[in-house]
């Protein structure tokens, strides 16, 4: 007889990665999060090297949560959406501060979703929720596998709803997935995962 699965430990941080077509999905998910969202959110989106500030502006427009560019040595702060700066990899140190690097591109991307996810998996272990959305390459799959191995929660966009299905499909193929969701479901699931008192609301 198998023991009933214990409820997952409360989530302490969320990482969201996306590429082609990701902005539209981010603009469905992030504005739907409440202004008292209790944990930090980090966003890595593949954008051009010269697109300084464009992504934050596009996200900030409708968000209740504050949106800032992640800055090296700054603490990862609850209730804030931190966006990876263009043309740098973003990482999290063990003391939950950001660091950045100009190391080579990973999956032809800088910032790379894998790079942030692998460091965040080490920093938060089972306290991390990772979200992988639409995208046209395999960045993120190694990272999701690291999150899963560390006991974190992996949420992947339903490839059938993705502008580009390769990225979510690659993570699913790796088995690095706990739930496959349509865009409209991410906000309520994240809110429930991060606020155990609302676990009953988990759909």
């Amino acid at each position: 007889m198998s023991a009933p699965q214990p409820p997952h430990a409360p989530i302490q941080a969320v990482v969201i990665g996306c590429s082609a077509g990701g902005l539209e999905v981010l603009r469905m998910i992030l504005p739907a999060l409440p202004d008292d969202f209790p944990v930090p959110i980090m966003v890595v989106a593949h954008v051009g090297a010269a697109s300084g500030g464009y992504l934050e502006d596009a996200i900030r427009r409708d968000c209740k949560m504050p949106v800032v560019e992640a800055e090296e040595r700054q603490p990862v702060t609850p209730g804030i959406i931190h966006v990876a700066p263009p043309d740098y990899h973003l990482m999290v140190e063990a003391d939950h501060t950001f660091s950045v690097s100009t190391d080579p591109k990973v999956h032809n991307a800088r910032p790379s979703i894998d790079v942030l996810l692998i460091s965040a998996a080490e920093a938060w272990g089972s306290g991390l929720a990772a979200v992988l959305l639409t995208g046209a390459n395999a960045d993120g799959a190694d990272g999701m596998a690291a999150v899963k191995a560390a006991g974190g929660v992996c949420l992947v966009q339903d490839p059938a709803t993705a502008f580009a299905s390769e990225m979510p499909t690659a993570a699913i193929a790796r088995g690095a997935v706990d739930r496959i969701l349509v865009p409209g479901r991410f906000a309520p699931v994240l809110a429930a995962l991060c606020n155990p008192s609302r676990t009953a609301e988990l759909p």
């Binding site: 990899h89 990482m91 140190e93 660091s99 190391d103 460091s119 080490e122």
Partner: peptide, 9 residues
């Protein structure tokens, strides 16, 4: 050195 990128390298 900062650990996260050093670990990757």
């Amino acid at each position: 050195y900062a650990r996260a990128s050093l670990k990757r390298r």
